[in-house]
Write a protein that binds this DNA or RNA. Sequence first.
RNA 1: UGACACCCCUUUAU
DNA 2: ATAAAGGGGTGTCA
Lengths: 165, 165
Amino acid sequence: MTSGPPGARHGFHVFVDGCHEPGSGHGGWAFVVYRDDTEVASGFGGVERSTNNAMEVTAVLEAILWIENTAAGEPAVIWSDSVYAVDGCNHWRPIWKNNGWKKSNPGGRGRNRPIPDADIWKDVDTRLSGNPSIAIAWCKGHSGIAGNERADALADQGRRSIRRT
Amino acid sequence: MTSGPPGARHGFHVFVDGCHEPGSGHGGWAFVVYRDDTEVASGFGGVERSTNNAMEVTAVLEAILWIENTAAGEPAVIWSDSVYAVDGCNHWRPIWKNNGWKKSNPGGRGRNRPIPDADIWKDVDTRLSGNPSIAIAWCKGHSGIAGNERADALADQGRRSIRRT
RNA sequence: UGACACCCCUUUAU
DNA sequence: ATAAAGGGGTGTCA
């Protein structure tokens, strides 16, 4: 197995990644689509002012958009190395939705404030709710997984594209 | 612990901090004494079973004790990043004292519960009442203030000292 | 409901 | 080794 996890018979494996440079505030996102261990598509972009987590979620959203437009209904796994993005999709998304996209953790740190990047999360939620064939999974970052490394490089390219505007 | 001659000019600035590890229950406290931006003394210690707020107040108490023993009567400002400790000293202390160190219930009915760590607060009250030249002030934590950072590190050392008893 | 502090964990970046 | 973006919990006050 050179890229992607086992079981890539049918459907897609989409690796996503985001990056962010605190100095400039510029961020980048990317996705790479694999079918049977072969890269079949990719996309990336840059954002002028963002945060690291916002870029990770944006990468997931862009991957979903590609699937919607190109392979709607086909089974797909989106792999992200961001626990924030993955748990946000799989665990907190229904909770946030139920709470009107606000944090409600009595005693916690950020209480009853709108969750960061609520607009992105709402978009992700709408589309994931309508595409049950899309799964979000976590993979370890910077550990030699080909798809993850490729997405990492593309996200960086997306971030650098900001300067040449 | 370093020591130096008491400041002959005009007062001390004493930064205090407390820390607490919920897992072990161990806590630490520390104070650092500055005269003209120079550290002239410091002290720290550990407590086996405590709370974060109790350690913050303990740090204030230990600073007061040092002033009493070393520079009684000299103007001094004790800086703490705990609103609980600072407001406890400046605002609620006379109120609590007036209520017999108990919290009055808004409903009037029901028992008046003793304030937490009443023994420490009573000690603080006695000594502050006898030392009007000592002021308690608040400073933001973890924001680059040298004295606060130093006290933070020493409090942690005090907490860790519990292990190797 | 707000504020402050304390502890643990994840990811990113330099 | 630094800083920044998140999640969970605790103790306290109004």
